[in-house]
């Protein structure tokens, strides 16, 4: 781990979060915490035509890594079909963040938003996390 972790992109998203807030009557939502950092994150989603994500918001508190990750993730899945969002993988997210080599501790911060997104989707589908998603 190095100071390179805190690239411009992370700091920018941390200081200027996108899609931060709440939605009225969301179709899907989930919340989880990272007990290590004390990060808390909730995601809310409103669905549009053909089960596409019409609107997505996150709220909570956490470190720069988790908050930036949440912003980036919400931007990336906006407009996607639920099934495509369900299949969204962590490599895509870490790649977009520009931080493919987070250590085993801080990667939990980066992946918390993805886990919460998946929790919301799976719960909407009446399922529990399956496959690799169980390891998020």
């Amino acid at each position: 781990m190095s100071e390179d972790l805190y690239k411009e992109i992370i700091l920018d998203y941390y200081k200027n979060p996108r899609n931060y807030g709440t939605l009225e009557n969301p179709d899907m939502k989930a919340m989880d915490t990272n007990p290590l950092c004390g990060d808390e994150l909730e995601m809310q989603i409103k669905l549009g035509e053909s089960d596409k994500i019409a609107d997505i918001r996150f709220n909570g508190k956490g470190c720069a890594i988790s908050m930036a990750s949440a912003s980036i993730l919400t931007e990336m899945v906006q407009g996607k079909k639920i099934e495509d969002a369900r299949q969204f993988n962590k490599e895509e997210l870490l790649g977009a963040m520009g931080t493919p080599n987070l250590g085993p501790v801080r990667i939990k911060c980066a992946l918390l938003p993805l886990k919460v997104l998946k929790l919301a989707i799976y719960s909407h589908l009446g399922k529990v996390l399956e496959g690799d998603d169980r390891n998020l």
Partner: peptide
Amino acid sequence: GVHAHDTASILDT
């Protein structure tokens, strides 16, 4: 303006 974990990560460097 800085989360405790970010502080600890940078101090670790």
